[in-house]
Computed example of a mutant assay.
Amino acid sequence: MNSRKDQLAALDRLLTIMDELREQCPWDKKQTMLTLRHLTIEETYELGDAILENDLQEVKKELGDLLLHIIFYAKIGSETNDFDIADVANDICEKLISRHPHIYGDITVADEEEVKKNWENLKLKEGKSSVLEGVPRSLPALVKANRIQDKVAGVGFDWEEPKQVFEKL
């Protein structure tokens, strides 16, 4: 495995290549967040397939494709002075710290289920009006239904038998 220094150097190399492509390549110059969107979705599905096939070399390649997309979106964001890759990384760091008070705070949890419940409750405290707010509108219907079920189960809406639904009501 590569050292942290080597990992950071590889990310720096990718940032440099993205700068060069954005300046010099006609196709890369033309891209917008909207034109990249469908390609990003396709890459995400390709990663999902590689994971299902347990093809770790393909997982590595698809992760690279997705990382490229993340860097690409951040580059576009920097060109409009809205955000850059540092903003993206710092925002996710802050989110992870705030959503893990059992690691970075004084909360104690018994198990994974408590972590999941705390996660949803923390999201509501952050201003989300519903646990369903984080489910993307554009997800395919079956995937969306599964995500909604996962989310509502996390706040106590999950039953073994249909009659339990009526008891809850």
Rank of each mutant, 00 (worst) to 15 (best):
Y104D: 00
S78I: 00
K5I: 02
I76P: 07
K163N: 12
P140M: 07
Y45R: 15
K75I: 01
V135N: 04
W27Y: 13
E20F: 07
I41Q: 14
N90I: 02
K163M: 10
K5N: 04
L52M: 14
M1I: 08
I17E: 08
E113L: 02
L56T: 10
V59C: 08
L169G: 10
V109M: 00
G134T: 15
L139V: 05
K168H: 11
S3G: 11
V109F: 02
T35V: 10
W159R: 05
W27E: 14
S138L: 12
K29P: 03
E167A: 13
H69T: 02
D49Y: 09
R137C: 06
H102R: 03
E160S: 09
M18E: 13
E112L: 06
A110W: 01
N81C: 09
I70G: 02
D55K: 03
M18F: 05
E120T: 10
N54L: 15
L132K: 12
P101R: 00
V131T: 10
W119R: 04
I148T: 06
A141P: 12
Q31S: 12
D158G: 11
E79G: 14
G64F: 01
T16D: 05
S138I: 13
L124C: 03
V59F: 09
L56Q: 11
N121E: 13
N90S: 13
E23F: 04
D49P: 00
S130Q: 10
E23C: 08
K29Y: 11
I107Y: 04
T32D: 02
L36E: 15
F83I: 09
Q57R: 13
D28R: 14
S138G: 08
I41T: 10
K116N: 03
G154A: 05
E46R: 10
I97G: 00
D65V: 00
I85N: 04
